[in-house]
Design a protein around this nucleic acid. Structure first.
Lengths: 110, 110
DNA sequence: TATCTATATTGCAATATTACAATTATAAAA
DNA sequence: TTTTATAATTGTAATATTGCAATATAGATA
C-alpha cells in the first residue's frame, strides 16, 4: 500500500482499519456471505463458487482469518470455516455508533 | 492492488467492497470520526489533527467523497465536509444482516 | 489589483495487494 | 504403502495505494 504510517494513528483506528480492510474486497465479501449462507464451509466449496484459483481463495481465507473475521477448524481432510461472531458484532457496533452520531447532529451542517 | 477481477464479482459485492475500502484506512477512520465529532468540518481542521501533510489528507477526503461516504459543500473560502447518512446506513444494514445470519445459524458448526 | 488562506492537482518514490502456476503438506481411502 | 483429495505455501508479475514536495487554483480580504 505504500508507506503506511501505522504508528502515527491510534490503536483504535488501526484496529478498525484492519477489520474493515479484511472485508473490503469483493472476493472476500463473497466468501464471507457464502460461509454465512452454507454455514459449514470448506475451501474447495468456495473454489467452485468463485471465478478464482484455489491458491487465491486460500490467500483470501488467510487474510480473513488473520483479521479475526473468520475462524477455521480442521475437520478430517478438510477445514471448516465459520464467521467470527465477535468481529461482526464489533463492526456492527462501530456503524451503530456512527449512525447515532449523525442522527444526533442532524441539521447542524451541510 | 494487483490484477483485480472486478468484472467477475457481482455488483452487490463490488459496491460493498468500494464502500468498505474507502473507510478501511486508519487515516480515513480518523477523518470520519473527526467530522462526526466536530460536525462542521473544514479540511485544514483535519490537517491540524492528523500527522499527515495537507495533500495527503486532501487525497483521503477525495476517496471518501468518491465512495459517497462524505459529502462536501463549498462554503466561501473553505469546504464543509459532512458524513453521508445513507452510506453509513447502508453499512449498518449490511452488518446487521450478517449478524442476524450468525444468530440464526448458531451451533450448527464450529 | 495584490495578497493571503484554504484546498486541489500533479508527479513520483516506496510499498502493499492481487492473482496464479507450481509445488508442498496432510489426511483419508484404496 | 500408494494414491487421491483438500488446502496451504512459495515465488513472481501486474497493478494499486500511500504519502509528500511542488505547484496550481479559487475565494476572501486588504
Amino acid at each position: 500500500m505504500g508507506i503506511s504510517k501505522t504508528e502515527h494513528y491510534s490503536n483504535k483506528h488501526n484496529e478498525i482499519a484492519v477489520l474493515l480492510k479484511a472485508v473490503a474486497h469483493p472476493a472476500r465479501v463473497a466468501i464471507l456471505e457464502h460461509i454465512l449462507k452454507v454455514n459449514a464451509c470448506i475451501c474447495n466449496d468456495i473454489v467452485n463458487e468463485l471465478p478464482l484459483a484455489q491458491p487465491t481463495i486460500s490467500q483470501h481465507l488467510k487474510e480473513l482469518k488473520n483479521a479475526g473475521i473468520i475462524i477455521g477448524s480442521v475437520e478430517g481432510n478438510s477445514i471448516c470455516y465459520c464467521v467470527n461472531e465477535k468481529a461482526i458484532a464489533k463492526l456492527l457496533k462501530l456503524f451503530e455508533g456512527y449512525s447515532g452520531k449523525i442522527e444526533k447532529n442532524k441539521n447542524k451542517c451541510c
